[in-house]
Design a protein around this nucleic acid. Sequence first.
DNA 1: ACCTCCCTATAAATCGTTTTACGAAGGCTA
DNA 2: TAGCCTTCGTAAAACGATTTATAGGGAGGT
Lengths: 340, 340
Amino acid sequence: MLDRTSPVSIKIVAERAGVSTATVSNVLNGKTSVSPVFAERVRRAVDDLGYVTDSSASRLRSGRHSLAGVVVPNLTNPMFSAFVSTLECVARQDGFDLLVVSCDNEAEQEAERLRSIRSWRPAGLIVIPCDGALSARLPKGGHPRIVVADRIPDDAGFDLVAVENALAAGAMASHLAAQGYRTCLVAGSTLEISNVRERWDGVAAVAPESVHMVECGLDPAGIHRRLRDRLRQGPRPDALFTLDHVTTLIAYQLLAELEISIPDDMGFASFDDTEWMRLVTPPVTAVRQPVEDMAHAAWAQLMRRMAGGDGAPEHLRLSCAIEIRGSTLRPKREPKNAAA
Amino acid sequence: MLDRTSPVSIKIVAERAGVSTATVSNVLNGKTSVSPVFAERVRRAVDDLGYVTDSSASRLRSGRHSLAGVVVPNLTNPMFSAFVSTLECVARQDGFDLLVVSCDNEAEQEAERLRSIRSWRPAGLIVIPCDGALSARLPKGGHPRIVVADRIPDDAGFDLVAVENALAAGAMASHLAAQGYRTCLVAGSTLEISNVRERWDGVAAVAPESVHMVECGLDPAGIHRRLRDRLRQGPRPDALFTLDHVTTLIAYQLLAELEISIPDDMGFASFDDTEWMRLVTPPVTAVRQPVEDMAHAAWAQLMRRMAGGDGAPEHLRLSCAIEIRGSTLRPKREPKNAAA
DNA sequence: ACCTCCCTATAAATCGTTTTACGAAGGCTA
DNA sequence: TAGCCTTCGTAAAACGATTTATAGGGAGGT
């Protein structure tokens, strides 16, 4: 792809204004003082030509960056798109543009994305890693500045902003127990994702006996099949608690398909609160993660590092709210198939 | 922000491999042939140091770009995030990274975003403009390569990929009429957005007498208030057709709030199909836009231009599907308040 | 009148890369 | 052995910007 679209460089501007390129640079960056007459001439030339500084050339020489990178597992998950959206907004306020890539939840792609994003020499990276092995996908000696968000890498050497997964999941388990749900099936994509693992641990810590976990995988068809098989075989649990958004979506449809009514036949709760959960009947009880806060915190931490902050890695955990809605409000009467 | 993180340049690699920088470049880009011995030495040095080419320096010298820009009204709207997600995926296959910015539906921000994105000298831009005046926000002489998507700018000089708004909206109006809905209220954000305008025109063309339009604006609180006032005053329409996702969401909640039951008291249909519309009861009839196709087409067109395609601007319109669901299936009995 | 000092504009160096032009070395023919 | 062609590595220039060092010119002091 040859560039024929942007022939307007600082040299052209300088020529048109009848000054040197250094003077143009000084006018635009306000480093050295420039006489009002020259400054005005330069400004007019800039306006006339619609000139904007070439950021990469500028970075190359000055070493001052105005680009940051974001790596997320995917962009269609509303969790992640909200994260990116918030990030984009707050980064811009600090004068940064954002290079956004998604890795489709695949380690291999993540490695390649990280490589290609590093090639732009961003001032820093914010990464929601697709698994724990993030550090294996970075150059051995001296990473770029990185803040990890949402999912916990095996390597504790990164700055980290995540949520209190175990606490929130435990609280949800308590709520279910308090509502009289005795047997609870917990469904999530895979325990290899730290979030799912921590959430399951949180549930298991609260209710060690009556809960079971089913790992459904990442692709929709597989989730549907595994969950359906699990619900058909053996005694039906009193409640279903799904640990991530994709699983929640498919589980909800599956319950309708199997004509299991919520909350009469089965209680239903979800980690990750999205707007449709308020719209369905009954509305779905969910753990609401502070996604925006997470984005703010991650960016703030990255800015601190970029400003030269050099201390030990910081690990921040934000707490979640539990939105109790109709899907877990157990009817007073005993359910039809209790202890079946 | 000073760069202290990436001291590994091609010069360091050359030194370690005991060759010149030109040779390193030749090995990496495969332009000129390099002897196997030297090539291997270089590759080892590259691996050891974790070197990746500085894309901006490379672009600066070679004029070959591997960056494209995307400007969208916002990222939280699932329509737009799906668009960006698809685009990111397909652009990557052609070796491009994506600079993503959102303008919060504000013209002023759009102008600033366009400026800052141009500073990266992208090979091309894909823009969903927030209003019709896009060309006023670009430099007078010679734009960067741009493909406009989804919304129609006043200036017909852009390549364009959008959907058959009027046709689809008209088809929906016909469906409503066929179901026996006689009076229909049409609600959308504002007629200043071309999509809303075209959709409304499409409805009006089919059913010129019994339809009315209400413009609700862009902010949630305003939409809720205006729509509520409109529904309270005067005779209640048989059906409500909302023209964009935000309005749909708020309208749906409002109907529940006003205890208007769907489809008995009122039919309900939406432009923009999102996943929750299948999950609620009754499920919501909606026009499904081919967002992924739109992204594919926009990128393909941009690639064509980047490859030197120089013809007249191309305007492509994709057709939409209508997903008929329970919310517009009128019960056989006469509705309670017919012709009230 | 001369010297000094500040103010401001510019020439030139530089960032990391690609490319062009050159030159060295080796193999071939006559 | 001289001459020529091919192969392959390197020095140096260039891309568009910023920065450092330098120079010119006017003002002010003695």
